[in-house]
Every structure is written in structure tokens, then in C-alpha cells.
Simulated assay, not measured.
Amino acid sequence: MMKICMSVCQQPLPPPQLDFSPARLNPNFLSLNLHPPKDKVVIIMGATGTGKSRLSVDLATRFPAEIINSDKIQVHQGLDILTNKITAEESCGVPHHLLGVLPPNADFTAANFRQMANLSVESILSRGKLPIIVGGSNSHVEALVDDEDYRFRSKYECCFLWVDVSMPVLHGFVSERVDKMVEKGMVEEVREIFDLWDTDYTRGSRKAIGVPELDSYFRAEPFLDSREREELLREVIEDVKRNTCALACRQRQKIERLVRAKKWSIQRLDATAVFRQRRSTVDADVAWERLAVGPSTHALSRFLLSAPRGERNMARCLVA
């Protein structure tokens, strides 16, 4: 083989002239894909009260999709008011998976969620639908996406959407929401599962914020007059609000950690203006469409149409 001495060459060799004319190209060349195409999954994240469930339904009514709940409390049966489960009317006919499917006292670990969510994703994809995973249990979502051997990421391409609201504004909304939950019968709902002899609040739906707080009220109630009961209940409700706000802060910090430390590519949707205008339903709905639904629909359309050529026909059907 002839060797070229680089010290003799004063000028770089010209690049080879390649013929990219259609007549010379193999028709399968451009569509060659060395890696098998991945199915697509959407994951909606955010602190409690930011509108994650609403956005998931909005997207599922624009794209043929089904929703997988990733909230570790809402997976249990009961406490629909306390856990703010989406209602049949709010779901707009969109199928929801892992919502109210386990007994109240059942354990539900991150490993349990990973197994059940994977089965749900496969089931949804088998019907030609788009899986949308939504919920506030970010530790469960992380365990699913970044599993031990990264099998999830090897099979699926993920589109992460983060509905964010500034904490002071969100705290005001959360406080109002707790008051509305009380009006809907939250206290009576929790009273139904109260057990005088059971003080274990580490299992199942009994871990939900509001259950341990109301325990002290139910235990003291028989020994108090009406004024004292009213005062104690007011204090307990304030505890529920504070603990819910603290949960929202932790959830937001967890998402920030996923972005900062684990380099998750998450599209942030700032919905603060929506909550500032919540006194006016019309203005809030307009802001929600502009700040949350519109940008996420655009992002999801691009995400689905980024598939290799062989997948684009299906993607266009999903977008249509």
C-alpha cells in the first residue's frame, strides 16, 4: 500500500466529490436507521394544584391519547375529595389508568408503579394511542424513566412538560382549594376512614395530607364544646394548607433537581398569570390556552413529527 508523507504535502488534499444526484442514490439510503425507532411517551410534571390533570385532558382531546396517573395517593380507592381526583366530567371521556385501582391500605412503592406503568404504556401503544403520564409523585416518575438498566429510555422517547406556577401565587390558590374541599365534604370523607385504634399513617391513602392532621380533631371532638371544636377544626385546616404548600415546594425542588443534576430536558410552561386571573373564569381560560395548552400542543406536535420517515404517517394521524 502506498504511503503519503504528510511533510511533503504543502496543500491539503481536496475533499472527494460525491455524487448525491437521485440517479446515483440507493432509494433506501436516506431512510437507513441504525437504531430501531422508539415509541413516544409524554410526561406532564408539576407541583400540586398547578393544573397537570387539566393539561393532560386538554392534550388528550387534541391527540388520540390515554392518561396514566402517577400520583401515589390517587392510585388508591376512596378519598376522592381530599386527593382532588379528576371527576368523570372533567376527564371528558379520556381513559385514565392507575387511578383509584388499589385498596386504601395497599402498599404502592416506586417499583410497583414502574411495573404497572410499563404495562399501561404497552397497552396504550398497542391500541395506537399516545401514553400521557401525569401526576405529582416525581420520585415514582424518576424511578420509571431512569430505571436501573435504563430500559425505559431504550424503548421510549419522552416529551417532558412542566406546568409551573410561582410559589406565592400557588400558595394562595392551594389555600382556597382546601377551603373548597372542606365545603365539598372533605372532613366527613376522612371521618369515614378514621379508626380510633389505628394510628398508622404510613400506608396507602392514609398517607395523604389531611388524614393525619384530622386525626387529632376526631380524637378530641367528643370532649369539646361547639366553640372549641370549631376552633380546633380551623387550626387543623390551617395545618393542611401549610403542609400542602410545603409539599408543592418539595415537588418543585425535585423537578429543578431533575433538570439541574440529571439533565432532563423539560419544557417549562409558566402558568402563573392563569392563577393571578382566577377570579375571572373567562380571562383565566384565555390565559390557560395561551400559556399552557397552546405551547404544549405545539411542542407535542413537533415531538410526534420528529419521528423517522417510516413512523411519520402514524405521527401525522396522531397530530390530526
Rank of each mutant, 00 (worst) to 15 (best):
I43K: 03
I43A: 14
I44V: 14
I44N: 10
I44C: 05
M45P: 05
M45I: 08
M45V: 07
G46P: 07
G46K: 09
A47V: 05
T48E: 00
T48A: 07
G49T: 05
T50F: 04
T50S: 13
G51R: 06
K52F: 05
K52M: 04
S53F: 05
S53T: 12
S53Y: 04
R54N: 05
L55E: 13
L55A: 14
L55R: 13
S56Q: 03
S56I: 05
S56A: 15
D58R: 09
D58I: 05
D58H: 13
L59H: 01
A60L: 08
A60H: 05
A60S: 15
T61C: 14
R62C: 08
R62Q: 14
F63P: 03
P64H: 05
A65S: 14
A65Y: 04
E66W: 10
I67V: 14
I68E: 03
I68L: 08
I68A: 06
N69M: 10
S70F: 07
S70N: 03
D71F: 07
D71Q: 06
K72L: 12
I73F: 12
Q74N: 15
V75Y: 11
V75N: 14
H76M: 09
H76N: 10
H76W: 03
H76Y: 08
Q77A: 00
Q77T: 10
G78W: 02
G78Q: 03
L79W: 01
L79M: 10
D80F: 00
D80N: 15
L82H: 09
T83N: 15
N84W: 01
N84C: 11
K85C: 01
I86D: 08
T87W: 02
A88D: 14
E89A: 14
E89P: 00
E90Y: 00
C92R: 15
G93C: 09
V94G: 11
V94H: 11
P95Q: 01
P95H: 00
P95D: 02
H96T: 02
H96L: 11
H97L: 06
L98I: 15
L98G: 04
V101Y: 08
V101G: 12
L102R: 15
P103A: 10
P104G: 07
N105Q: 13
A106H: 13
D107G: 11
F108K: 10
F108N: 12
F108E: 11
T109Q: 10
T109E: 09
T109N: 06
A110C: 15
A111H: 07
A111F: 02
N112L: 01
